[in-house]
Simulated assay, not measured.
Amino acid sequence: MNAAEDLASKGFNTTNMRIHHLQHVPFEGLAAIEDWAKQRSHTLTATRWYETDVLPRLEDFDMLVVMGGPMGIYDEADYPWLRDEKKFIRQSIDSGKPVLGVCLGSQLLADVLGAKVYPNRHKEIGWFPVQFHPELNNGELVVCHWHGDTFDLPEGAVRLAESAACKNQAYRYGDRVYGLQFHLETTPGSMEGMIAACGHELAKAEWVQTAEEMRNGLPYAEATRTVLFRLLDRLEKFV
């Protein structure tokens, strides 16, 4: 039995899926999401806003992933492409495509779905626990956070995770749109990239860890990767 047959026997979609992702800064790429896509022989394309503003036609991709970044959804004066990105995300949702938003991506999803996005009362940077609804994971899991903003739950959305520092950590809108405030995709490489680019934010506080503490938390990434892959497998079935 080859790899494709093995995946098919476990109920996975083995048809080549075209995944497009929106990347806002060089140091916040797909990380473990790319590992999942390569395992299943899916095709990856990207709009990297720091290089280009070219977006694909809706018919040219099957699933959309919106990644993180240090800017806010309200920073359109500094990042005018945010206007086009929001329109594109809304069109992707309305067309029925599976959509996953991570960190800034989850905030952009919340915004286009009509919810308010605003600074959280705490910055949350480091490995801290969230309490999951059974749909994503059973009970508590320590995940990687790096965010200062948060959002209200979009009307009609279902909260899937929360934490002591941030009420809305994950949500589902309909069957095929998911927003994650945290970073299930974290790998050692992605962690180093974020520390190198945004390490100035690591001023010790109640919900902010040091760079050393964040590196020491990397063993948690194996469990978060499992939850990520489970979620992506669910979204894959809608293609």
Rank of each mutant, 00 (worst) to 15 (best):
M1L: 12
N2G: 07
A3E: 11
D6Q: 15
L7N: 04
L7M: 08
L7R: 12
L7D: 03
A8Y: 15
G11Y: 13
N16C: 13
N16M: 12
N16H: 14
N16E: 14
M17I: 15
I19K: 12
H21F: 07
H21Q: 08
Q23H: 03
P26L: 13
P26F: 12
P26A: 15
E28A: 12
E34D: 12
D35W: 13
D35Q: 11
K38H: 15
Q39M: 15
S41F: 13
S41M: 14
H42E: 00
H42Q: 02
T43L: 14
T43F: 14
L44S: 05
T45V: 11
W49E: 00
T52M: 02
V54E: 08
V54M: 09
R57Y: 05
L58Y: 05
F61D: 01
D62T: 01
D62G: 02
G68L: 03
G69H: 01
P70N: 13
M71A: 03
M71E: 05
G72L: 08
I73K: 05
D75A: 08
Y79C: 04
E85Q: 09
E85R: 02
K86Y: 02
I89A: 00
I89P: 00
S92I: 12
D94R: 04
D94T: 08
S95I: 01
K97V: 10
L100M: 01
G101E: 05
V102L: 04
V102T: 01
C103K: 00
S106A: 12
L108N: 08
L109D: 06
L109V: 03
V112I: 05
Y118I: 03
P119S: 06
P119N: 04
R121V: 14
E124P: 00
I125A: 03
I125W: 02
F128S: 08
P129L: 12
V130E: 11
V130S: 14
V130T: 13
V130F: 11
V130I: 14
F132Y: 07
H133Q: 15
P134R: 14
E135W: 15
N137C: 15
N138R: 15
G139E: 13
E140A: 10
L141A: 05
V142F: 09
V142S: 12
V143E: 03
V143P: 00
C144D: 10
H145T: 06
G148F: 04
T150W: 01
D152I: 06
L153H: 02
P154F: 11
G156N: 07
V158S: 09
R159L: 12
R159K: 15
A161L: 11
K167T: 08
N168A: 07
R172Y: 00
G174D: 01
D175C: 02
R176S: 01
R176F: 00
Q181N: 05
T187S: 12
T187H: 06
P188D: 05
G189V: 14
S190L: 11
S190D: 02
I195V: 11
I195L: 13
A196T: 15
A196P: 10
A196F: 13
G199P: 06
A203M: 11
A203V: 15
W207F: 09
T210W: 07
T210K: 10
E212G: 08
E212Q: 13
R215N: 05
R215T: 05
R215F: 06
Y220K: 14
Y220N: 14
E222V: 15
T224D: 05
T224S: 13
T224Y: 05
R225T: 10
L228I: 08
F229L: 04
R234H: 14
L235P: 00
K237C: 09
